[in-house]
């Protein structure tokens, strides 16, 4: 599982639709310092692709994505 990832901040974006999970992730990552890790939980099925695109564009790294029953959990390392 994700026991090996040390999470610095958790963002609950469950129940939110595009573009709010991305906007909230951006804000949360901005508040971190480099190399810190944000855990984001979403229920928006589109967030899986969106989060990858967002991270690629902004130079941040998605370390891991977990899919549960209707939920997605992202571990994002602030890299930029």
């Amino acid at each position: 599982m994700s026991a090996d990832i040390k999470v610095d901040q958790v963002l609950d974006a469950k129940g939110l639709s595009c573009p709010l999970p991305i906007l909230k992730t951006k804000k949360a990552v901005e508040a971190l310092t480099k190399d810190q890790i944000l855990k984001v939980e979403t229920t928006d099925p589109g967030s899986k692709n969106d989060m990858a695109s967002w991270a690629k564009r902004t130079g941040n790294e998605v370390l891991k994505v977990e899919e549960g029953s209707g939920t997605f959990t992202f571990y994002i390392k602030k890299s930029a």
Binding site: C18, P19, I22, L23, K26
Partner: peptide, 12 residues
């Protein structure tokens, strides 16, 4: 507004 806010979040 969706595209504008998302683009801004993607450093555009």
């Amino acid at each position: 507004l969706i595209l504008a806010t998302t683009a801004a979040a993607m450093d555009v």
